[in-house]
Amino acid sequence: MRIAIITPYWQEPRAVIERCIASVAGQTIACDHLLVADGAPHDWLDTAPVRHLRLDRNHGDYGNVARGIGALLAAGEGYDAIGFLDADNRIDPDHAALCLAAVGTQGAGADVDVVIARRRFELPDGTGVALADDPDLIDTNCLFLLPGAYPVIARWALVPAPLATIGDRVFHAALVSAGCRMAHTARQSVTYVSQWVAHYAASGGAVPDDARAIDLDAIALWVAALSPEERRALERRVGARIALA
């Protein structure tokens, strides 16, 4: 198996990126790590044990374009599986092995296109967050694509700016719309380092002024303002129906 892990990055500190790299390098099944600079490249990565791709500008889309470019490159080079890991997160040493094991649990002859890994939450200071994941949200870092899902990869780069903050939801909807068959891992293997308001609040500590929040109401208003023709064009573009309550 040739496995690629795709990491878009922008302005994360070196120590944070090094932690991410170490978690991929420590996999029990060897993985190639592709880091894609979204307009703010770290020169030191050119001599690190990774592949370093440089985009000439930042796209301001939570890494969607950079993620899509890296994954398309891996697909075009014939990798057998493609995972994703944001620069501020990390994976357990057996993450890739767990994803491959999930394929095997589907039974002989079963075709799996996507494995959904499980995640735990942690604040930037290392504090654990005892909050259950949203079962309706498949986070980017939990995706492990097999060749049957590769035709959907380009959708990452086609998510328009007003939907960028929910790009993972849009991409998952595109996978479902494409009929991709999915399996789930047996346990958590992704550590998601969160800066979201909900996770700070759940930890019982103070919520920093720069904590993140998604304004779903604003996104819903943007979608509702589209004409029927614009709505159809959007859904053709992203490969899925856009339904926001």
Results as ranks from 00 to 15, higher is better:
residue 11 Q to N: 14
residue 14 R to D: 14
residue 15 A to F: 00
residue 17 I to Q: 06
residue 19 R to A: 14
residue 20 C to W: 02
residue 26 G to K: 08
residue 26 G to Y: 07
residue 27 Q to K: 13
residue 28 T to S: 14
residue 33 H to P: 09
residue 41 P to W: 01
residue 44 W to Q: 12
residue 49 P to L: 13
residue 51 R to N: 00
residue 54 R to H: 06
residue 58 N to P: 00
residue 64 N to V: 01
residue 70 G to V: 04
residue 80 D to I: 03
residue 81 A to M: 11
residue 83 G to H: 02
residue 86 D to H: 01
residue 96 A to R: 08
residue 98 L to I: 00
residue 101 A to S: 14
residue 104 G to I: 04
residue 106 Q to R: 15
residue 107 G to V: 12
residue 108 A to C: 06
residue 108 A to I: 13
residue 109 G to D: 07
residue 110 A to L: 11
residue 110 A to D: 11
residue 112 V to P: 05
residue 113 D to E: 10
residue 115 V to L: 02
residue 115 V to C: 05
residue 117 A to G: 15
residue 127 T to N: 03
residue 128 G to F: 03
residue 130 A to W: 11
residue 135 P to K: 05
residue 136 D to I: 03
residue 136 D to V: 06
residue 137 L to F: 15
residue 141 N to L: 07
residue 142 C to R: 02
residue 146 L to G: 07
residue 148 G to L: 05
residue 151 P to E: 12
residue 154 A to S: 15
residue 155 R to Y: 11
residue 155 R to I: 14
residue 157 A to K: 09
residue 158 L to K: 12
residue 159 V to H: 10
residue 162 P to V: 13
residue 164 A to N: 07
residue 166 I to C: 10
residue 166 I to H: 02
residue 169 R to W: 15
residue 171 F to R: 08
residue 172 H to E: 13
residue 176 V to C: 09
residue 177 S to K: 09
residue 184 H to G: 05
residue 185 T to M: 14
residue 190 V to R: 07
residue 190 V to M: 11
residue 192 Y to N: 13
residue 194 S to P: 00
residue 198 A to S: 13
residue 200 Y to H: 12
residue 205 G to A: 12
residue 205 G to E: 04
residue 208 P to L: 07
residue 213 A to T: 05
residue 214 I to D: 00
residue 219 I to R: 04
residue 219 I to W: 06
residue 221 L to V: 11
residue 225 A to R: 13
residue 225 A to C: 06
residue 229 E to K: 13
residue 230 E to H: 12
residue 234 L to Y: 01
residue 235 E to H: 01
residue 239 G to L: 08
residue 241 R to Q: 10
residue 244 L to D: 03
